[in-house]
Structure formats: C-alpha cells, structure tokens
Design a protein around this nucleic acid. Structure first.
Lengths: 337, 337
DNA sequence: AATATTTACGAAAACATTTTCGTAAATATT
DNA sequence: AATATTTACGAAAATGTTTTCGTAAATATT
C-alpha cells in the first residue's frame, strides 16, 4: 500500500510531475510514446489523482448536496433516485443531508456547506422553515441552488415543483363528484408553499361547486405522528362529521386509515380519502387508496439537470423560474371508485 | 462576494496566515487579545476554512460513502436515516451512491472512490455481485469498510446484519403453525448471502417439521419487476399449487398480492403470505401483511458507529466481526391471524 | 546581572494537483 | 545557411490550509 501520486510516478519514470499530469490528461504537449509509458505505469500502480488536491487547484468539486426533510418517504426517495441518476451521468457526487423537518438543523447544514465542499445544492425546505437568510448566505458564497418540491419563492432561482394548485383542485373536485359534501383538508404546515397551493386548489374547488368553506375543516396536523393522529381523530369525532378527507401528504392519509380503523369508520362509505402520494402499493391498501401521484423521479432529474447545466457553464446565476411537472390523479376505492 | 481566506484575513489584520489559522483553532500559542481580533473579523467576513485545502493537508476528509442497491426501499431508506443521524453527530458527511443492483455500476463506483474522496464506506452489495476484487482494491487504498445487510463474507471487516437464518426459520415455522403444507420460498438472488441464510432457515423449518423440501418451490425471482411477477404467476398457476409463500423481500410479497388479485386467489385462505419488510403500512394492506421487520434504522446506526470509531482511531483496520441485530415477526391477516 | 524559560508570533514546508510560461532541440521555411 | 516554427518537456507558481520549527521579546530564575 505504498503511496502513489504524481511525484512517485514521475520519479519512477524519470520525467517531471507536470509531464505525468499532462500525459494523463492526454495533453497535446506530450508525445505519444511518453503518454504510453505514463498511462501504463499509472494503471499498473492503480493511480487515481487525489480529488481534494485537484478540486483545490481547479476550484470546483464536482459535488452537490441534497438537503431534504426525510428519506423514508416515497416522494423524496424517488426524487433522490432521479437526482443520483443524473449525477452519475454527469460524473458528479451527491452528499445527502436530512433536516428531519427541523429549522435549526437546516440552518446548521447550510452553515457547514459554506466551506467549499460543494458546487451546488438541491433543496426541499423543512416544514418549520420560516425565513431564508441561511439560504441566501449559501448563495452569497457562490453556491448554485435549485429548489424542488418544497420551495421558498423569496429566493430567486429555479424551482421544480408539481402543479399543486391544479392537482389540489382536481383532487377536491373528484371528492365532490363522488358525492362528498363536507370535505376536510389535512395540512402539514401553513409555512410550506406547496401546502398552501394545494389548499388554495381545495378552496377553489369548493368555490367552483358552491360549497361553503369551513375553516374548521382545515386541520393543521404537523410533523409529529401522534399529534397528527390526535388532530385527525378529533376531526372525525366532532359533531357534523366530515365525509371526505383530502390529505396533503401520504402520511396524513395513512394516519386517517388508522384512525378509521380505531373508530370503526368504513372507507369510502363513511369517509372518502384521497391524498398526494408516491407509494407503489396504493392499490393494495384496504381499501385501495386514491392518490395524486407526483412525478417524483422526473422532478429530481429535472432539478439536477438544471443545476448541472449551470455548473458547467460556470458562474452564470440561475434565473428565477418555475418548472411545473404535472401530477396524475389515480382514482381507487377510497373515493368510491 | 469578495473572496475571504486565511490570507486576506491575515492581511487585513496585519498578522501572518499561521497566526490566523492558529487563532481560529484556539491554539495556546496565540494571545487572547489576538484571538479575539481574529475571531471577530472571521465572523464578520463569514469565513469558513476551505475543506478541500484542509482535508488535503490533514489527510482526512470526514466524508464517507454509502453504497446501496436502491433507495426507494423502506429498508435502505431507514438504514440511511440511521447512518445520516450518526454521521451528523460525528460531524461526518455522507455521499450516496446507488448501484440499482448492477455489478458494473458497483465496480465503477468503487473505482471512483479510490481518489481520496472519502475515509470510509458503508456498503450493501448488489444482487448481481459475484466477486469482490473491486472491494478489495478499495480497501487496499486504506479506505475502511463496513458492510450492512447485504454482505460479502470473503472480505474481512465488520458486518452488521439481522438474524436472517433464525428469522427465516421463524417465518416459515409460523406458516407451518398456521396450517401451511406446501410453502414456497421467493428468492431475490442466490448470490446474496442474506438470501441464502433466509432460505437455509426456511429449509431448517421444513426439516424440523418433517416437510419434504421441494426444490420447485424455491423461486428465483430476480430484480426485474415483471420477471418476478411472471415467476410468481407460474408458481401460483402450476399444478399442486403452493398454499403459502415466504418472500425474502417486501417487493416479492407485494408482487404476490398483485398476482393473487389477477388470479382471484384469496389471501390468506388460498395462499398465506409472509415476508421480510420494513413498510410502515403493512397493517393497512388488504389483507394486512405479516412481516419480519428488520431493525433497519439500528443497523444503519451500528454500522456507522463502528466505522466512525475506527476512523477516529486512525489506521486501525476493522476486525472481522458479525454483528447481528434481531428482527421481529409481526403476524397479521395474510397468515391467517 | 547573567542565564533560563515562557510567550506570541512568523516563515516555510507540506498536502497533491493543475497550469502557465519558458526553453532546448528538432524540424520547416525562406 | 539563416531564421522561423513546432515539438516535447520541465520549473515553478498557484490553490488554501495546517503544522513544524525558529526566534525575538518578555518574563522568571539563579
């Protein structure tokens, strides 16, 4: 395991360090014969240029960070999948950071990333994030950023999301068409732009169908599982009970299923349920779950593509732009289909 | 966005670069007064030491790689969750690489990682991996490695897995106790040690209960979803049909559910199903799914802990050791409970 | 007062690359 | 034959840290 670097290779070949470096980069300055000798020895010694030295000199790391709230979540897992695929294609490396929906953690991660470790960031903000100074600081250091899904509109850069408003409208309208009269909206956090857009779509659908909006039917469930369970239970045990639920995220729908199990409510007869979800087994649930499926994989790919394009073109800041990919509604038994 | 580094700070303060560096590291060589001045300016200028320069000099990166077959998989998602948690605690950074169960990709990733980018690796090998030279090469470069879940026993290092044999035995025995007579084993790949152990447990259970082992009931399903579907369909349509299925991974169980839907077979009456799985919604399936739940989060944490401990103690190679965390069997309707 | 020790800092090497620039020799051009 | 150009390489600077070692001044010890 004797160390091998440009210096040792050069010494062994009786040429200079720069010659070895250039030969390995297939530079026109080096004769074919020398290149051969260098490449052969490098291969034999299993030489790999030290990326930290080379990044330092080149002033680029070919590394990006992905900051997401969680990973045990089908949407984020698929999105990361897409990101990683594009990263491998472009020979970039992907650092992963989980905020667990904590604002403090998100800030701390952004602090850490100001140390030249990365060229760019793909980010989905936490539900608790209410400002954006930590993100602005990051960009001040010349780090490119692209948001996906959970964005902050105050930051001027590219944002890849799904058509949350329209999908929210469609999901709600679907419930109405299936006969629902009192539809509840289960919210994750009013700080999240996507949540607000889905809710806006929900309200638009009510308006369109002349259903009066009842603020009591908008339930802030939060991140904590047990808290969400409680809120939903309260909702489903309150007088003049709701007959349908539109959950802004999958977790809130599955919690609804659990609550119904406990209360003995039958889906879809007693309660219709639809939600944003990327689970692959929606059709196997009891009853099968109607979902709004986000193109998670595509969202990840697009976000990564935009970032890498700009990274290759150097120093060009990313224009403020909303890329919107369509979700698709899949109706199943939970809404009476 | 004028650049700020030790040099510019030193110039502005009228001291040397080394003084600034030492002051920021709170070295005893620097007076309190100077430290104050340095720290204040550094804060004001929002200075972060360049990690590539510092890694180069220190010869450690505080970065690890996690290599897994896929991420849209509850087991790996939870494991990565555990890894990331421990990494953040220890101030390490986590690079993620997906092999998509391709041997070529796994090799290529290992090649890339020989460039001094990382100090250590946590790895779950792909189902197609049949040798281990690429892994040995990595270790030759002085990179520490810990396996989790999908291990290669030929490599001498720590391996964190679950009690696959015993759990396989328990799962099979559970099926037998529930009245199953002809139990099939759905295998992912005979190249995987965990798969073989689960299968060995299955065979042991048959032996114990005097059930003759029928090789036709061991179905190699592979990674491809449609192929798995086909194999399972063949199994369930063949004469003298099996009455129970033990799936080595979740995906094969959900495929089984799909096949049963198509064939109109009723679980658990026509077919009992149990599988290794980490899905959080097993209880919501139709029918609810009996699972062997691996402590995925803990496995990730343990593997990361072992790696970091050795990284801190420098150069100490990791002893060959099998750490086995117990899985727990949760019986539900799919096995008639 | 002479010597020893401590304090507080700076110069420079080291980490492993990449890249600019200089140049000797070989070849081409007039 | 004299000059211009090309070829093939090397020296050295640069990237931004960390760390070793040297040392002048201040303080302590005899």
């Amino acid at each position: 395991m004797s160390k091998v670097n440009l210096k040792t290779l050069a010494a062994e070949l009786g040429v200079s360090v720069s010659t070895v470096s250039k030969a390995l980069q297939n530079s026109y300055e080096i004769s074919e014969e020398t290149k051969q000798r260098v490449v052969t020895l490098a291969k034999q010694r299993n030489f790999r240029p030290n990326v930290y030295a080379s990044s330092l000199r080149r002033q680029q790391t070919r590394t990006i960070a992905v900051i997401v709230p969680e990973i045990a979540n089908n949407f984020f897992a698929f999105a990361i999948n897409g990101i990683e695929e594009i990263a491998q294609e472009n020979d970039y490396h992907v650092l992963i950071y989980l905020t667990h929906d904590s604002y403090e953690k998100e800030v701390s991660i952004c602090e850490h990333l100001q140390s030249g470790r990365i060229d760019g960031v793909l980010m989905s903000v936490s539900t608790e994030t209410n400002d954006y100074e930590h993100i602005a600081k990051l960009m001040d250091k010349g780090i490119l950023l692209v948001f996906f899904d959970r964005v902050r509109h105050e930051i001027e850069t590219a944002k890849v999301t799904t058509d949350d408003f329209v999908s929210g409208l469609n999901a709600t309208e679907h419930l109405i068409e299936q006969g629902a009269k009192r539809i509840a909206y289960l919210s994750l956090s009013s700080k999240l732009s996507i949540d607000n857009k889905r809710k806006a779509g929900y309200m638009e659908a009510l308006l369109k169908h002349n259903i009066e909006f009842d603020p009591n039917l908008v339930v802030a469930c939060g991140n904590q599982q047990h808290e969400a369970y409680q809120r939903i239970k309260e909702l489903l045990t309150s007088p003049n009970r709701t007959d349908a639920v539109f959950a802004s995220v999958e977790k809130l729908a599955t919690e609804t299923y659990m609550v119904c199990q406990e209360l003995g409510l039958k889906i879809p007869n007693d309660l219709k349920v639809i939600c944003f979800s990327n689970t692959t087994i929606a059709s196997l649930l009891n009853p099968s779950l109607s979902t709004v499926v986000q193109p998670a994989f595509e969202i990840g790919k697009q976000a990564a593509n935009i970032l890498f394009q700009h990274l290759e073109r150097k120093n060009i800041s990313i224009l403020n732009e909303n890329i919107i990919l369509k979700s698709v509604l899949v109706a199943r038994e939970s809404t009476g289909c």
